[in-house]
């Protein structure tokens, strides 16, 4: 049955979709800027952060309004709490993309070859970002679980890249600055994967009302 205040929920969903596509595009662009050493694109990404911040506040305000005025229960309550958390996670993803874009600018000023290959990590991270967003949009807990399961892979890639960079920096001390920037990029990609996992975990809470956070143990 439709409810007279459902349009408020529709409005929130629409704004969240807007946020999602903005962040998704930002992360795709970031990875492209990194791969292609594209300074202009990196600068665009840094500017886009303001739009994301603005959207985050709008969504928070709308959720708070609905919590206060509708006093939601059950699935409505779980949806609003999830929306609030997903919103924060998306904004932080945007921040990580900005960090990578800034690293792209620094790396451009200090040329020195590829050193490490991010392509595999980028693929998994992009899969996780898109997957968690689709899971939220289509209330798909199976997909959410797949996303959670892939987080360890990214953690492992991050460790491996840090190790490679440490070895390289020891052998080429004159490239230490470049290695540090690349290390931060790796760390930022890994954080984006973590945030995707958070969103996927929150999707499971939204749909099923159970917490799967922290060491995969179900909590009540």
């Amino acid at each position: 049955m439709g409810r007279y205040y459902d349009e408020n929920y529709d409005q929130l969903k629409q704004k969240l979709r807007h946020m999602v596509s903005a962040v998704q595009q930002m992360i795709g662009d970031t990875i492209r800027a990194l791969t292609d050493d594209n300074v202009a694109l990196a600068k665009e990404i840094i500017q886009k952060d303001e739009e994301i911040d603005h959207l985050e506040v709008e969504i928070d305000e709308l959720v708070i309004k609905l919590l206060a005025l509708q006093q939601p229960m059950a699935v409505d309550l779980r949806f609003l709490v999830t929306a609030l958390k997903v919103n924060g996670d998306l904004e932080r993803m945007g921040d990580q993309a900005v960090n990578i874009a800034q690293a792209v600018l620094m790396l451009h000023d200090k040329p020195g070859g590829q050193i490490v290959d991010f392509s595999l990590m980028e693929d998994v991270v992009q899969f996780m970002v898109e997957g968690c967003i689709n899971a939220f949009d289509s209330a798909d807990t199976a997909l959410a679980q797949v996303i959670c399961d892939r987080d360890d892979e990214v953690d492992e890639m991050n460790r491996s890249i840090i190790h490679q960079l440490a070895v390289y920096a020891r052998e080429h001390p004159d490239h230490a600055d470049r290695c540090i920037s690349l290390l931060l990029v790796s760390r930022n990609l890994e954080r984006i994967a973590d945030l995707s996992t958070n969103i996927a975990e929150d999707v499971v809470y939204y749909i099923q009302g159970r917490f799967i956070k922290h060491s995969g143990k179900e909590q009540h």
Binding site: M1, R3, P72, M73, A74, V75, R78
Partner: peptide, 18 residues
């Protein structure tokens, strides 16, 4: 009951769907 009801009828009632 108010966060995660087991039955759909309960869910529908407390969320104002009927």
């Amino acid at each position: 009951l108010f966060t995660k009801p087991s039955r759909k009828q309960t869910e529908d009632y407390i969320t104002g769907r009927f």
